Simulated scan of single mutants.
Amino acid sequence: MAEKRKITLKDIARDLKLSPSTVSRALNGYPSLSEETIQMVKEYAEKHHYTPNTMAVNFRKNRTSILGMIVPQIVHHFFSTTINGALETAKKHGYSILLAQSYDHLKDEILASQYLLGMGVDGLLISVSNETQEADHLQAFLEEGKPVVQFDKITDFLVGPKLVVDDFEGAYQAVAHLIKQGYRKIAHLSGRMEVKNANARFLGYKKALEDHGLTFNEAWVRPCFDISEQEGYDFTKSLMESPNPPDAIFCITDLVALGSMNYLKSSGYQIPTQVGLMGFSNWMLSDFTTPSLSSVDQFGYTMGSKASEMLIDLLKHQDLGGNELVKLPTELVVRKSSVKG
């Protein structure tokens, strides 16, 4: 049996011998029409289960009620929480989100942005890749009057609102905690220095050492390229096998810290009595490692929700925004991996 065709606005107009524009105005309750006409059209539409073609309406209004969102990795715990926050906030405001990932590569980020722009999204949420050192692909949104809100990983190559956590302060508090626990030779498994949030965490680490009278040792800083568990393992191995090994390690993310923990445990080091360990991000896994991992909570859900609110507010006011930078606070979460006593 053939599927029954969905009734259209033109069908209602034909059956009631009215113009399509009159039917449209009646369905929207225009006061210029008689109450009798409005009632007749609405009753007919309800009886025949008429639903408006939302995509067509939005096309005529030059909007889709869809936001684009690009993150480096969808399965990454921090980004999965930002996605969740952005989705739930967008839904409350009548928007949906079309999601893409860059795999932390500029080439894939460009392709994703071109796809989303072609799909007609109203605006873009993006955490840029580690390779992003230009922004022509993002400027294309602004040229079409579509606002862009950057969050977490940002670039100054694009003028527009940016939302980050206070990476400097979070790193500073993490390292200050390690120092207060009695650690004096603190290494840092960092990110790439050209990436703004990684650089801020490095500077927070360095400042905490200086403020507490400890000498900064460049040999104890190892930049991670992929920000991976394997890098955490390999760099910890090289540090601990060096002539002057550290007694604590502050890692750029919890995933890197997990690799560091795996090496230390497999090599017989006692955490935290011999080596203290600190991550950053406060993944769910941090509670379930042995020992549990101290970390810095960067509140991914809150960041995603706030970024979504910022973009929707720009759309509401038909504004592309200025170059404001909003910083959200972090919170030190102390667990067993960094407490000697």
Rank of each mutant, 00 (worst) to 15 (best):
V57M: 11
S281H: 10
P329M: 04
F225L: 12
Q270V: 07
D211Y: 11
T132I: 07
N84T: 11
Y115N: 06
N217V: 09
P52Q: 14
T302G: 06
T64Q: 09
K61R: 15
V275K: 02
S19Q: 12
K162L: 01
G191K: 02
V339A: 02
L320T: 13
T289D: 03
T290G: 02
L311D: 08
G268C: 03
E169W: 11
S65C: 01
M284P: 04
L18A: 10
F79A: 07
K4S: 12
D211F: 04
A100N: 04
D313T: 14
V339R: 13
S96F: 14
K42R: 15
F280N: 07
T51V: 15
S292P: 06
R5H: 10
S127G: 06
S113Y: 03
V121Y: 03
K91E: 11
I110L: 05
T273G: 07
I126M: 00
A135E: 00
F168Y: 15
K107L: 02
A307D: 06
G170E: 13
L258D: 00
L203R: 06
I312N: 10
A187C: 08
R25T: 04
E331L: 05
H77F: 11
N244F: 10
T51Y: 09
V221E: 01
S295H: 07
T81Q: 12
N199K: 09
L255V: 14
Y233Q: 04
S65I: 00
V71R: 11
V339W: 09
G123H: 10
R14T: 09
I186G: 05
I312V: 14
R192I: 03
D152N: 15
S305Q: 12
E194F: 05
S338V: 03
E309K: 14
T290W: 08
F250C: 04
L18P: 07
K327N: 05
L328Q: 08
K6T: 13
K10G: 07
A200E: 05
T54P: 00
K196M: 09
L138S: 10
I312T: 07
G341A: 11
M278Y: 07
P243R: 10
L33Y: 15
L125C: 03
R60T: 04
G191M: 11
G120F: 04
L325M: 14
N84F: 13
P161F: 10
